[in-house]
Amino acid sequence: MSKYLSKLTIPLLAVMLGLIAGSIIMLISGYDPIAGYGVMLDGIIGEQYYIGESLRTIITYVLAGLAVAFAFRTGLFNIGVEGQLIVGWLAAVWVGVAFELPKFIHLPLAIVAGALAGALWAFIPGYLKAKFRVHEVIVSIMLNYTALYVTNYLINDILTDKKDRTERIADSASLSSPFLQSLTDYSRLHWGIVIAIICIIIMWFILEKTKMGFELKAVGFNQHASEYAGMSVNKNIILSMVISGVFAGLAGVMEGLGTFGYAAIKGGFTGMGFDGIAVALLGANTAIGVALAAILFGGLKAGALNMPLQIGIPSEIVDIIIALIIFFVAASYFIRWLAQRFNQKGVK
């Protein structure tokens, strides 16, 4: 019972509590929650175009979520996914703009560039953790801002002549797909969906089927036992962060090569890296869980855009709901405590 409780009941209860809290907030602020959620659902799957846009959002959320989840499995909190995503985005676009190559070379090259950039940015906190025992959370927060300002500088001063965004990438480096677009009434859905699915399978395969994955998880469970069993804790810490960074970089690639086709100066964070934390937590850090959570959060996020237009509810209601869901998942002790009280009453 307790096993099921933590595996499925807590995420489901957290989502339910989050949605209920969201409707209470809507009620208090004088909106109709049922109409609100109705419009939101319509914005997720109501039209072909909406389905396409929801899927597009989900693609990035899957990768950002995988990035956070992978590091979590080794006991590391990669809060730096946001920064790794930004550098991955820029690196992919850079390759996409700078070269003229046939598509079968150019596109993979741009994708790999983005993934490597993310990996490199994640290597720094991994290395510092392994070598100096510095907490990866603080380092990666600092690197998020460093990434933001450095990429803004590169776009503004190096890649362009004081413009606020790069040129469009060459068609040979683009992930966008006229076929998928025509299927979904010309949304921005792109071939990244294939990459996202492959990455879900890769994550599952690495963690469940390989010796490397076993070691990574072992270090996450108990560093001392792993060390004693002859595993190199430091190597696994760095490896975990680097793989996590690859996923994060790919999330940026999706935006750079798929959704936008350029990189622009950012006034603040995209927020996708932080939402990745929510996805990973709700998905209990498993590949399939991340996929499901990404579908939920990506859908909510895309559907929310419909709310201000149709019914006048600010789309930020979804950010509130997602934040509350993380709270509820994080404080699962609270839910377990509630469930226990509930059970005891039932017995009596």
């Binding site: 932080f274 934390i277 930020e316 997602i322 934040a323 509350l324 994080a330 404080a331 002790y333 405590w337």
Partner: peptide, 22 residues
């Protein structure tokens, strides 16, 4: 409720921005 402190902090940040802009 013994929630993970870092995760709760992240949630607090998301909540603050969402709530205030709302």
């Amino acid at each position: 409720f013994r929630a993970d402190q870092t995760v709760s902090g992240v949630a607090l940040n998301l909540l603050a921005v969402g709530l205030t802009i709302f």
